[in-house]
Amino acid sequence: MLQCHYTRARIPALINQELPIQTRRYVARHLDHCSACRAEFERQKTVKQELMRELPHFGKPDESALERIWAQVQSDLRPAAPRHNTRLPLKSYSFGGIIAGLLLVLLLPIAGNAGTMSVPHHPSPQIIVLTETPTNRVAVAVPTLIALVAQTAPGETDTPTILDNTPATPSAAVP
């Protein structure tokens, strides 16, 4: 029983040929005599063979996908090109929520009745209400706020465009 336990723990390593020679001998000898462990060994070997055979084929793209991605990479790399892609950098999402929240809090008193913005049958167009506010700073921020409010509404699947230029920060990316 103890031998079985010891062997089971080493079966994956045995299959991957990662056991030191003495351990390998010991485990192999047990497998010769214990049919239960032997069966387990065969099962795991099948799984490994299946993975080795199937994983290199798994998720192969079609060429149209690769061409589409390449076109987008190129347009992202083009220095001065205006960027209006709707799919946004992934890493900025969580910041997006925070900044959208901050903007909301900041503009709430000025916008007056921001709460009504989400009521669908509100009669007056929000843009007019908001652009009537006097301060310059707010006038600049207003369209963004509207975009943010629209985008962070129930679906919350999109990241606001405002964060498009957030610097890339993959922590593990730089070796």
């Binding site: 798994f58 793209p61 991605i69 790399l77 993959p170």
Partner: peptide
């Protein structure tokens, strides 16, 4: 491209996500 797509798809298990991430990967790398 193919290897990176396979990798992203195998981890994310979703074509659209794999495309998005892969675009991001190559833009960052370049």
């Amino acid at each position: 491209a193919t290897a990176m797509y396979r990798l992203c798809y195998s981890l994310l298990l979703n074509r659209q996500d794999a495309e998005d991430v892969m675009q991001d990967v190559f833009v960052y790398a370049f």
